[in-house]
């Protein structure tokens, strides 16, 4: 600072050349990029371990312990759904017989995609549905989470015939399921996703419950 007052000539001489700004920006990008890559590397294993734990937790909520004697996380089969997207299906077995399956389903909510885990038994009855991730408005749309509201438990025990297919909608659309005060789009997306998930099971039943 003081140098500029003392000698203007010196300040002209040290005036940075234009390219120096590029160099500085590049150096910062490189430095912080490295720090982030490093952190990503350090946390990668822990994050995927947490994700696996979460998966195990959510599976145990939609595949009750008493229907299987295997570890469903390890017994998987991959099936393409009607949109050509690959779905990993986790299978619960008792005495080698498939007693139920669980897989991820996707719904369109107010603020983006809602990921859910759905469990269904061999006869096509729902064992349970849980939300894995969503971006819905806190305090409004997040009532789809089991820990914030019992709403999602309403689906357990239902199937495509009970209620009938055309009743698988929120009440506002003439169906059987409650929407939330102030949030219709979120439950509408969840109900549609569960209906599609069951249709997926019906269409692929043989592949999912086959012994291979």
């Amino acid at each position: 600072m003081n140098a500029t007052h003392d000698s203007p000539i010196a300040s002209v001489a040290v005036k940075p050349k234009p390219y120096i700004h590029g160099v500085i920006l590049f150096a910062f990008c490189l430095g912080f990029g490295l720090v982030m890559a490093l952190t990503n590397d350090v946390t990668l294993d822990d994050i995927s371990a947490r994700a696996l734990e979460d998966k195990q937790n959510s599976l145990s909520q939609v595949l009750p312990d008493n229907i299987h004697d295997n570890n469903p996380v390890l017994d998987t089969v991959t099936v393409k759904n009607e949109e050509g997207k690959e779905t990993t299906v986790y299978r619960a077995r008792k005495d080698k017989q498939v007693t139920g399956v669980a897989y991820e389903i996707f719904g369109t909510g107010y603020a983006g995609e809602i990921r859910l885990m759905m469990g269904i038994d061999a006869s096509g009855k729902l064992l349970g549905v849980r939300v894995l991730a969503h971006k819905e408005t806190p305090g409004l749309g997040d009532k789809i989470e089991a820990k914030k509201s019992p709403w999602i438990e309403r689906f357990t025990g239902l199937s495509l015939g009970n209620p009938s297919v055309e009743r698988w909608k929120v009440k506002k659309d003439g169906g059987d399921f409650d929407q939330f005060a102030g949030a219709t789009i979120t439950p509408r997306g969840v109900v549609a996703a569960i209906r599609r998930g069951q249709e997926f099971y019906a269409a692929n039943k043989d592949k999912l419950t086959g012994s291979n």
Partner: peptide
């Protein structure tokens, strides 16, 4: 994916 926020801003 972890670089998304930074890249987008740039």
């Amino acid at each position: 994916g972890f670089l998304r926020t930074v890249t987008f801003i740039l």
